[in-house]
């Protein structure tokens, strides 16, 4: 019986800092997709209640302690950092997504500007406040973006494309750093 070693999507990519802005892979937490069946909203919320969570509205999230429930698309949310309540299984399809996504953290004064290179979203603080989440492209990749602080974002991309996402955000930061030196 082998002793299998787990490897994260961006293993070997050390955090980097450009002009005070930091890009790093975030530690993995269990992720379970929850997709309620039609007409089962009340039952789903009841099953989530013990976690202190409720099914989030589009572009939102529900959080309690270390557990988060992140809206992740049509009829779907990702439960992050908590075990899935067993009672949910009757009312929603549940799939383990822990391994499907790489999570990148981008924080610092250039974070918003860096993301507004590859992401075609209005990420100004007023339009995209802390706690807001969106499914949106990161250049040609599907991504889930969440603003975690005034100057901090969490970027989820499919695991197989994590290196491309890393490269694109790195380039955006390098360009912004060079621009900052210009004037």
């Amino acid at each position: 019986m082998p002793d299998l070693i787990a490897k994260s999507a961006l293993a070997g990519h050390a955090p980097l800092v450009r002009a005070g802005t930091r890009l790093a892979e975030c530690a993995a937490a269990p992720i379970t997709s929850i997709a309620p069946y039609p007409g089962r909203a009340a039952q789903v919320d009841a099953a989530l209640a013990p976690l202190g969570l409720s099914f989030p509205a589009p572009n939102g999230q529900s959080a309690s302690g270390t557990a988060r429930l992140l809206w992740a698309g049509r009829d779907m949310a990702f439960l992050i950092g908590a075990e899935t309540p067993a009672a949910l299984a009757d009312h929603a399809s549940l799939t383990d997504q822990t391994d499907g996504w790489a999570i990148l953290g981008l924080s610092g004064p250039l974070a918003e500007a860096a993301l507004m290179r590859p992401v075609p979203l209005d990420l100004r603080l007023a339009a995209f406040p802390v706690g807001r989440t969106a499914r949106a492209p990161l250049n040609h990749m599907q991504a889930i973006l969440t603003r975690t602080d005034d100057q901090a974002f969490e970027v989820m991309v499919f695991r197989s494309m994590a290196r491309t996402a890393w490269a694109e955000l790195t380039e955006a930061l390098a360009v912004l750093e060079a621009r900052a030196k210009l004037s």
């Binding site: 069946y37 009829d75 997504q97 499919f158």
Partner: peptide, 9 residues
Amino acid sequence: VRFTSVTES
């Protein structure tokens, strides 16, 4: 019925 891509998982 609900379906979810698990290609990457």
